[in-house]
């Protein structure tokens, strides 16, 4: 059953009747719920409803030269709810981290229809348990995220991308290792092969004060043949890699070993983080000790199982 509530009350009613009738809710569309974006520019925070699309948020923040430093890959800008529940991320996670690093507070409707809050609107807060984290990556199986508060970042004064061609994976590996130990602080460190040839391209993104970006760009030249570039490879990756948000996550230093074993095909890698996007995902078995915790989590938060399996 998919629900399309027009008010919070209606959403709660839908959850109640699902629980009463023993039906599972397979999906929800929150676009008809009230929407709001409350931007506290001088505090560098924003509180918004989860049905807001990221692009809408960023364009509202842009005149203040602020942004939520997250750049998930998808054709249509995802909603805040999608970003949180699927833990979506993009190339700039190398510089800024994933959404868990930015969340300050969350409002969630639990399976019992009650609305709960965790965290708050201030940048530092350790009152109570950190339930915010629980809902990140939970794929809507513990509750429905209604609102969130994030800390924001000032726009970097300058951002420049550079790319370097490598004729083999082992050459790319060597360049990446040199970049990691160089005195630079990139915000993007990507590697891609979207042509299925042996040619790999390293993309590096530098951001910050204009002087910082220029100084780092000069260092790049001593590492490899880096040329000014742009982020068009991301659009190409979205077009060529089906299911772009399926990822493999490996120890960054083992990346090239793992890549060599993957079947040929278009691939985008966030090399600094060890994240591989080739349309497939490895099914890592959850340790049995953790699966016990997950089972209890499910039975505490959704005892009649209206949201489906964790």
């Amino acid at each position: 059953m998919t629900i399309h509530p027009t008010s919070i009350e209606e959403l709660a009613d839908a959850l109640h009747s699902a629980a009463a009738s023993g039906k599972q809710i397979s999906g929800w569309e929150l676009s008809s719920l009230p929407r709001s974006i409350v931007h506290h520019a001088s505090d560098l925070t924003v509180t918004l409803t989860s049905n807001v699309h990221l692009a809408e948020l960023q364009s509202k923040l842009a005149p203040h030269r602020q942004w939520l430093p997250i750049d998930p890959l998808s054709e249509i800008s995802p909603t805040i709810e999608q970003i949180l529940s699927s833990n979506l991320s993009g190339p700039r996670r190398y510089g800024f981290g994933t959404i868990r690093e930015h969340i300050l507070g969350v409002t969630v409707m639990l399976a019992n229809g009650r609305v709960i809050h965790s965290g708050g609107q201030v940048v530092k807060n350790v009152a109570g348990f950190d339930l915010c984290k629980l809902f990140i990556g939970s794929r809507g199986n513990l509750g429905i995220i209604l609102e969130a508060t994030f800390k924001l970042r000032p726009f970097p004064e300058s951002e420049k991308l550079f790319a370097c061609q490598c004729s083999s994976l082992s050459e790319a590996d060597a360049v990446i290792n040199t970049l990691i130990s160089a005195p630079i602080a990139p915000v993007i460190l990507d590697l891609h092969n979207l042509s299925s040839s042996n040619h790999w391209q390293i993309v590096i993104g530098l951001a910050g004060a204009t002087e910082d970006v220029a100084w780092q760009a000069a260092i790049l030249q001593s590492v490899g043949e880096f040329k000014a570039s742009n982020d068009h490879y991301l659009d190409a990756a979205i077009r060529q890699i089906p299911n772009i948000n399926a990822t493999h996550s490996v120890l960054p230093s083992q990346l090239c070993q793992v890549l060599a074993l993957l079947p040929k095909g278009p691939v985008l890698v966030h090399a600094g983080n060890g994240i591989i996007r080739n349309g497939t995902t490895d099914t890592v078995p959850v340790a049995s000790s953790v699966s016990g915790l997950l089972k209890r989590l499910k039975s505490e938060f959704d005892p009649v199982d209206i949201f489906g399996r964790l």
């Binding site: 868990r100 984290k133 990556g137 939970s138 493999h248 996550s249 120890l251 989590l297």
Partner: peptide, 14 residues
């Protein structure tokens, strides 16, 4: 020695 992303809810964070 594992990858930084782990599937499911962020129990570590919680």
């Amino acid at each position: 020695n594992g990858g930084e992303d782990t599937p499911g809810p962020d129990l570590r964070g919680a």
